[in-house]
């Protein structure tokens, strides 16, 4: 038996909107730790890892570890029927081939339940090692989204370079080139508006903008985004989900032929 009650149901709606275009089908894993997902896109270029910790739910009952295969597009269709202020409860019985999403309006005057068919998904779980990154950039998530959107109108790839000068996002295309440099800026009053660059050593990597733009669909989840870069690893683009966990996107770099 599984019963997870999330008072801030809009978080789950936002999570789905941020992953449904990247991943078609995925297993949601439920354990004492929380509600999680790890999935790759169909071409194995990007990986998404989501964790919503059990403590973040108002009520969290998960009698035994359960993996529920869901079509994310269908799940999104159902969650779109929940109001932004609704409380969402996810329910499943042991051995059942369905999951139920219950939506309660804040005033309890409307209660809806949507039952969705589960699916069997053969998914490969990957081990993501703890790593030291050459550079970690934290910046406003809206600023990062704007940069990715702007650069994708010029080129298909972005070179992200971190030096002591700052972080530079560059692209080139048929019509020309573009460079955007963001410098460390901690003087602003609000910490979520600051740009913080931790650099152990300079790093420069090239990524497909199509994926970066897809990751920025998670922007409504967090004011800040953290970009961790290492020349030996996929980049990690992380959005913290307030008091609950995170959504992390890993993207393999372009490699010189």
């Amino acid at each position: 038996m599984l019963e997870l009650r999330l008072v801030q149901g809009s978080l789950l709606k936002k999570v789905l909107e941020s992953v449904k275009d990247l991943v078609t089908d995925a297993n949601f894993d439920c354990s004492a730790t929380g509600f999680s997902l790890q999935a790759m896109d169909s071409s194995h270029v990007a990986l998404v890892a989501l964790l919503l910790r059990s403590e973040g739910f108002e009520h969290y009952r998960c009698d035994r570890n359960l993996s529920m295969g869901m079509n994310l597009n269908n799940m999104s269709k159902m969650l779109k029927c929940a109001g932004n202020d609704d409380i969402i409860t996810i329910k499943a019985d042991d051995g059942s081939d369905t999951v139920t999403f219950m939506f309660e309006s804040p005033t309890q005057d409307k209660i809806a339940d949507f039952e969705m068919k589960l699916m069997d998904i053969d998914s490969e779980h990957l081990g993501i090692p703890e790593a030291e990154y050459h550079a970690i950039v934290r910046m406003p998530s809206a600023e990062f989204a704007r940069i990715c959107k702007d650069l994708s109108s010029i080129g298909d790839t972005v070179v992200i370079s971190v030096t002591k000068e700052g972080v530079k996002f560059s692209t080139r295309g048929d019509i020309g080139t573009a460079n955007i440099v963001c410098r460390q800026n901690t003087s602003v009053d609000k910490p979520e508006e600051s740009t913080i660059i931790e650099m152990n050593e300079p790093v420069s990597l090239t990524f497909a903008l199509r994926y970066m733009n897809s990751f920025t669909k998670a922007t409504p989840l967090a004011n800040s985004v953290t970009i961790s870069l290492s020349s030996e690893l996929p980049v990690v683009v992380e959005y913290k989900i307030a008091e609950m966990g995170y959504i992390r996107f890993y993207l393999a770099p372009k490699i010189e032929d």
Binding site: G127, Y250, E256
Partner: peptide, 14 residues
């Protein structure tokens, strides 16, 4: 020219 890297060449199945 560059080619697209693959997640599976960085992270191993567990």
């Amino acid at each position: 020219d560059s080619k697209q890297g693959n997640i599976l060449s960085f992270f191993k199945k567990v």
